[in-house]
Computed example of a mutant assay.
Amino acid sequence: MRHSAAKRVPQKAVWILALLLPVAPAVAADGNTPTIEDCKAEETIRFRGGTARLENDLFIGRDQNYTNGVVFTAVSHDIPGKLQTRCLPKPVRLHAKFIQSVNPGFWSDAGGSAPTQNVVVKFGQSMFTPEDYTRTDLIRDDRPYAGLLYVGMSWNRRKHDPGSNREMLDTREVTFGVIGPLALAEESQNVVHDMVGSERFAGWDHQLKNEPALQIAMDRKFRDFRGAGAVTPGFSSDFIHSLGLRVGNIETSATLGVEGRIGWNLPNDFGTYPIRPGAENRPPSASVHSSSGNAARRVRPGVQLFGTLEAKLVAYDFSLDGNLFRSSHSVTRRPWVGQAAVGISVHGLVAGHGVKLAVMRVYRTDEFEEQDVNQAHGSIALSIDF
Rank of each mutant, 00 (worst) to 15 (best):
13 A>Q: 11
14 V>S: 09
17 L>D: 06
26 A>G: 15
35 T>C: 12
38 D>I: 08
52 A>T: 10
54 L>S: 11
69 G>C: 07
69 G>V: 08
70 V>Y: 08
79 I>R: 04
84 Q>G: 07
91 P>C: 06
101 S>C: 11
101 S>N: 11
101 S>G: 15
104 P>G: 01
105 G>H: 10
106 F>R: 00
110 A>E: 15
129 T>V: 08
133 Y>P: 05
136 T>P: 06
136 T>H: 08
138 L>H: 07
146 A>E: 00
159 K>H: 13
161 D>Q: 10
179 I>V: 08
183 A>I: 04
188 S>E: 07
214 L>I: 08
219 D>V: 12
220 R>I: 01
226 R>Q: 08
227 G>I: 06
227 G>A: 05
247 V>G: 00
250 I>C: 06
256 L>I: 14
259 E>M: 12
269 D>Y: 10
279 A>S: 15
285 S>G: 15
301 P>N: 02
305 L>C: 03
321 D>Y: 02
322 G>K: 01
323 N>V: 02
328 S>T: 04
336 W>I: 11
339 Q>I: 00
358 A>R: 09
359 V>H: 08
362 V>L: 00
362 V>K: 00
364 R>M: 06
371 Q>E: 14
372 D>N: 14
376 A>R: 00
382 L>Q: 04
385 D>G: 00
385 D>V: 00
386 F>Q: 01
